[in-house]
Amino acid sequence: MDSDLRDFILRRVVQIPVVLFLVSVIVFYIIHLPEGGPEALLSGQAGDEAIREFRDRYNLNEPLYVQYLLWIQGILTGSLGTSITTNQPVASLIASRLPVTLMLGFFSVAISVMIAVPAGYISAVEQYTWKDHTATVLAFVGLSIPNFFLAILLIKLFSVELGWLPITASGQMFSDWSLTLKSMVLPSLALGTALAAHVTRILRSSMLDIYSEEYVHVARAKGLPEKMVNRSIVFKNALIPVITIVMLQMGYVLGATVIIEEVFAMPGLGRLMLNSVVGRDYPVMQAVVLLYATAYLVFNLIADVAYGLVDPRIKYGGEH
């Protein structure tokens, strides 16, 4: 790794806390904006005394900025607080949920790349043939169907009708590995196909752009057979924007996991966040949103670095 690249990564890493600070302020204020705190959920059964005690325990009587500072102080000292609804430490809640979401994200992206790379390649190389038209139509179908709806169709077909795959691993996630992996198939497909559709289109148009480059013409003029032109010149150069898009899509995947985890009853981060919103569980909500923001920033950083690693024209630093 050259020193320019190291400097670039360092500078970007230094920016991350600044962005996270802003995100934390915004997240905190938005969450505390609505009237009525989490005690509203208690009020049915609990008396005034219980409510007061509850508000004290979670510092809800302090001014907002003090609550914020207490939260930040907790984060900096390694404590994300305690969940209001389950009384568990937020950190251990997240730790138990994170692997599910990571697996779902990884399999979705893997599926999308496995579908999109060949589909986009054939679409571009054999432009305007029936193969290209088929890929185009499927891509638009994939882009148009909301993934929760596709999820329901997949469940109906593969779980209910054919009985090939489980809908969910429910309580046996990570204890029964065969079941765990099987339960990942449908959610990953539901999430991955929309991604695949997007990447197919990007790869196709990126390759078609490269075909009009002069260096492709020069490659033919120096005697490269068309197959080599397609693979080693056009495809390789077309991958540069695709890699960036795939990395940026990791952010989209994070958002989409919320819905998919809900549909397939998966014990992931997305569902944790959703439940914390429903239950007005501030500590969990804040921590998960901040974690999503961090993940998004890291993926963006990886996208930028990857872009430079595959494209020798990009120079980090630019001071010389």
């Binding site: 005697g223 490269l224 494209d311």
Partner: peptide
């Protein structure tokens, strides 16, 4: 087409117009 590919660059070479865009950047 294959026979032509073996002639291009081998027996008849081509020097293009715009050197800036004529080399594979990667």
């Amino acid at each position: 087409e294959d026979e032509m590919a073996s002639i291009r660059g081998n027996e008849i070479a081509w020097i293009p117009q715009d050197p800036l865009s004529s080399l594979n950047p990667t």
